[in-house]
Every structure is written in structure tokens, then in C-alpha cells.
Design a protein around this nucleic acid. Structure first.
Length: 492
RNA sequence: GCCAAGGUGGCAGAGUCCGGCCUAACGCAGCGGCCUGCAGAGCCGCCCAUCGUCGGUUCAAAUCCGACCCUUGGCUCCA
């Protein structure tokens, strides 16, 4: 069954047909003015899983994810720390952190992470093209896109220029021919009142107003929307396959990207637009400006990557999702069951001879059903919740096999393990093997010793002592479970 | 005001594109049984849904059409 996706451009589920040998994917990335929060990580996770699924489906994927490192909010934070002398210093600091978190959350690396500051020439060139084509005009050193020159304006968001409330700051508005026109280039540095608004520290009147660049029109800064068009065209092509971004960017950002890109090239900018639903807390969206966010750093510390991913993968990318402690607790239960089953399967598999002939047809049927159902679900607009349900049915089959079968089906278990690794691991980015470093290995040996002592106490009937040992281990974050084959444990 | 998405059991959340296999998936919580010295895990089973409201189309609607109510997002920086 072939992949189909819901395209926000047409609002329809469409068969996915890439234009070339490589699938070209652009993800509207982060403005690096602050620590990223769980709302950002939700977009990244879904983008990551989409890219992984395309790769698993046999496509070569060229995945570009930008960092916006030129922005008023970034400029406003210059000087907040002694080492933050320039806008670039602040941006560099946050980009390094984001990369670290992305690694922590086990994302596939994008092909390129372009930055606005490195694409000023391409941006200027694109703006020149638009002016020459009559789609843009200069006013007092700034350049604006004239929305009345682009007939399809509004095709993504269905917003019509006439319906819009006047936007932008008053000075800018007076320069525009139409209220809905938007800036491609802004003369000068960041306005002092913008610095004032976004600065998180006391600053004097001489606060730096951000970096500026030479251009044919003025020494100034690029507009917000033009960067994505320039970087998408530079690193991908005039027409790309998939553009992914948050729902909050549909208007004006993506609408404007389409206008300026298609006006410049005459080509369709992106064939498929995928918009991810926003993360909410207490019935409003999580956002930097509302201050109701949970940072990726804190979440990684508190829940770890697998629980966070399991949480995100319990809803489809296009739906909104509500963050709560209860939801995270549920994700933790879901993840732990999967992880426990995986390890139980590995242990059971290790306990039998590879040449053993036992065969459990139920288990083997479950393996093939799982792959089939998982594939069907992912191909239906990346329905990760259904795909997860398929994986879930495999955990039940594996556990039942371990519970009831005697002897174990070596080949069946092996196939199940491989399925967990390819679907749960490679596609969902979950990590089953986390106990690899030396300290953990040593700790495991010590726990084994303690459990030997506890077994001796149990055999002697000293259950109080055995329970004390188990409780003490639990206090250290080590969960002990007794079974017919002896005790097992895991680190929480 | 304008544009968009959504309203399904205690919670969460699929299914809605292409009406029938939906007497509504996978879960979390809860309850019972097996197993166990106990606990946990696991297995088996159970509980909870007139699918926002009203009307229409149809042999048949959670799924299509219309009206209305409510929630969220966008229209200003925002994933």
C-alpha cells in the first residue's frame, strides 16, 4: 500500500508522489532565542519519524531544517551574559544546546541545518529577482512584497488580504502599499522598542540593535519569511516535495513563503504541506511568549528520550496534544511495557539453542501481522498511534509465548526482536538498549550479588530480610521482579 | 469580525478522506481470575460510549449534507 498524506494546501489526503529520485523535505525550524520547549520537540519528533519512515520505505531523503539566527529576540539578549557580545554569540549558544537536545532525543541528523546569517547573499538575490519581476518595491531602504501582484495569495490559509486587520508597526504600515504587504528587507537595525520588549535584562540606551548587512537598498536585516524561501531553494530546489511546520505558522509565514517563492520562480514551491498540531497545557498552547512551557532540557532529565517520544507518538502529527503529568505517566507505562517485553524476548531467545525446532504459529503470525499493520498505518498519513497499536499487539503475542510456550520458538522470538528493533527502533527512534556504559555494567554486577544474597534469604524463609533488600534496591531506583527462572531487575 | 482545526467511554485517543467488517482499535486508570511466600511483571477476562446538539440523505451514518452550540489555533514574534 502506498503512502498518502494530508496536504494542507488542498486539505485532502493525496497519494504521495515525489518529483525526483530524492525526497526533498524542508522543516521550518527554530528561532534560537531561548531554550526550546516540549512544543518544539513535538514538531521535531514527528518530522524525524516522517523522515525515518520515508527512508524505511526506500526513499533517499534530503532533509533540511533551518535555524533562524537573525531575529529581534536574539538581538535583545546581547549582553545578557558577558560572553554574548553579538547576536551571533547568542544564536551560537542556543544552536549548540538544540543540537545537544536533538541528540539526546535520538533524532536522525538532518542533511543540512542552514542558518539565516549564512544566506544573506541568496536572500538579497531573491529580493532583487522579486523587485525586477514587479512583485516587490522599495520604500525608505526597506523592501516589501506587494501581495496584490500574486493572484494565488491566500491559497494555503484561505485568508484574503482584504479580510486582514492592519498588521505591522505603524511606521512600517505607512510605507506599505497594502496593509497585507510584508517586509523582505528592513532598513537599519532592530528597533529600540523591540529590544525593550524582548530583553530579559536591564540594558542602557546604547544596547546593540543587532547585526546589519549591506544591500542594494540599505544597510539592514532580512524580513522573517524570505529566509525559508532562500534556504529551501539553495539546499533543495525551486520545487520541493514536503514542507513541514507548526500549525501556528500557516499564516502569515507559510502563506508569504509561497507568495514570494512562486512569484520569483513561477514554480510550485512545495507539493505537500504538512502542519503539525500544537502542544497545549491547560487548554492553551505551550509557547515561549506565554511562559507556560516545559523545556526540553528539563523533560529529558525528568522523563528521558523514550518516554518523551512515546508521549508524542500517541497522537498523530496533525492533532493538537495536551501535555500533563498524567499523560507523561501514561507514556511511561506504555514505553516500559514495550521495553520490558523486548528484554524478555531477548532473554528468552538467549536461553534456547539456535537450532531448536519448536515453532509457535501464533507468534509468527503476530510478527507478520504487526509489520503489515504498522506499514498500513504509517502509509495512511503517518498514523503513528495505529502503528504503535500494531507494535503493542506484538508485545502481547511475545509475552503470551514466553508465558505459555515450552520450549520457546527461537526463530519466532528472533523475528519478533528484529521487528521491535526495525519498527520501534529504526522508525520510531526508540532505544531499547540503554544499559551500555561501564558504570552501569559494574552496577549490574553488584546488583546480581545483592540478589544472590536475597535468594539465599528467601530459600531460608527469611522473607522479611528479602523484602528489605528489595525495598532498599527500589530506593536506589532498581526494580526487582521475581519469576520462575529467578529474579530479574532493571534500572528505572 | 475574518480564516483554520476539532468536539468519540473516568482519562487519553484511533476510526471520519473511500457510509456497511464500528455491537467503535491500542492504551492509562479501575475490577476479577491465574501465577507468587508477598509484591511487581506477565497472561486471561470484565467494567465504562445513544460517537457535541438538532434536522436531512440512505436499505445502512461516528463516517455524507445543512443549521446551531462549544473548544483550540491563526489574523502581532511563535513549532
Amino acid at each position: 500500500m502506498a503512502l498518502s498524506v494530508t496536504n494542507s494546501l488542498t486539505d485532502e489526503r493525496e497519494a504521495f508522489e515525489p518529483t525526483g529520485d530524492e525526497v526533498l523535505v524542508y522543516v521550518c525550524g527554530l528561532t534560537v532565542s531561548d531554550d526550546p520547549h516540549l512544543g518544539h520537540a513535538r514538531l521535531w519528533t514527528h518530522a524525524d519519524v516522517i523522515a525515518r519512515w520515508l527512508a524505511a520505505s526506500g526513499y533517499d531523503v534530503r532533509h533540511v531544517e533551518n535555524f533562524t539566527d537573525v531575529n529581534e529576540k536574539i538581538a535583545a539578549r546581547v549582553g545578557e551574559r558577558p560572553e554574548w557580545d553579538t547576536e551571533a554569540d547568542v544564536a551560537r549558544h542556543y544552536i549548540a544546546r538544540v543540537i545537544e537536545y536533538m541528540r539526546g532525543l535520538n533524532f536522525r541528523r538532518a542533511t543540512v541545518y542552514p542558518r539565516v546569517s549564512e544566506h544573506i547573499p541568496e536572500i538579497i538575490e531573491l529580493v532583487e529577482t522579486l523587485i525586477e519581476a514587479g512583485h516587490a518595491y522599495e520604500a525608505n531602504g526597506s523592501v516589501y512584497f506587494d501581495v496584490t501582484t500574486f493572484d494565488d495569495y491566500g491559497k494555503l490559509s484561505n485568508q484574503q488580504p482584504d479580510d486582514l486587520e492592519a498588521q505591522g508597526d505603524p511606521d512600517e504600515r505607512s510605507e506599505k502599499r497594502n496593509p497585507a504587504d510584508f517586509a523582505l528587507w528592513k532598513a537599519g537595525g532592530v528597533a529600540p522598542d523591540a529590544i525593550e520588549e524582548h530583553a530579559k535584562h536591564d540594558h542602557g540606551d546604547d544596547h546593540p540593535t543587532g547585526q546589519t548587512w549591506e544591500s542594494p537598498w540599505s544597510e539592514g536585516r532580512p524580513g522573517w519569511h524570505i529566509e525559508c524561501s532562500a534556504m529551501s531553494m539553495t539546499h533543495l530546489d525551486d520545487t520541493i516535495d514536503i514542507h513541514i511546520g507548526g500549525h501556528d505558522l500557516v499564516f502569515p509565514h507559510h502563506e508569504n513563503e509561497i507568495a514570494q517563492s512562486e512569484a520569483a520562480t513561477g514554480q510550485q514551491f512545495a507539493n505537500y504541506w504538512l502542519h503539525t498540531g500544537l502542544l497545549q497545557t491547560d487548554d492553551e498552547k505551550m509557547s515561549s511568549s506565554l511562559g507556560n512551557f516545559f523545556t526540553v532540557e528539563d523533560a529529558l532529565e525528568k522523563y528521558g528520550p523514550n518516554v518523551i517520544r512515546t508521549f508524542y507518538l500517541s497522537t498523530e502529527y496533525g492533532s493538537k496534544q495536551t501535555f500533563s503529568e498524567a499523560a507523561m505517566a501514561e507514556a511511561e507505562e506504555r514505553w516500559e511495557r514495550l521495553e520490558r517485553t523486548y528484554h524478555a524476548a531477548v532473554a528468552a531467545c538467549d536461553s534456547v539453542d539456535a537450532t531448536a525446532k519448536a515453532e509457535d504459529s501464533d507468534l509468527r503470525a503476530a510478527v507478520s501481522d504487526t509489520t503489515e499493520e504498522f506499514t498500513a498505518a504509517m502509509n495512511a498519513d503517518f498514523n503513528v498511534r495505529e502503528a504503535m497499536a500494531a507494535l503493542r499487539s506484538l508485545t502481547t503475542a511475545v509475552n503470551r509465548h514466553i508465558e505459555e510456550a515450552e520450549p520457546y520458538d527461537y526463530q519466532g522470538l528472533k523475528a519478533a526482536i528484529e521487528t521491535f528493533e526495525s519498527l520501534g527502533g529504526d522508525v520510531f527512534g526508540l532505544q531499547f538498549d540503554t544499559e551500555t556504559d561501564g558504570d552501569v555494567a559494574l552496577a549490574s554486577e553488584v546488583v546480581e550479588l545483592v540478589l544472590d544474597v536475597r535468594e539465599a534469604e528467601r530459600e531460608a524463609g527469611n522473607y522479611d530480610r528479602a523484602d528489605d533488600l528489595r525495598d532498599s534496591l527500589a530506593d536506589l531506583g532498581i526494580e526487582v521482579q521475581d519469576s520462575d527462572d529467578g529474579p530479574t531487575f532493571r534500572f528505572e
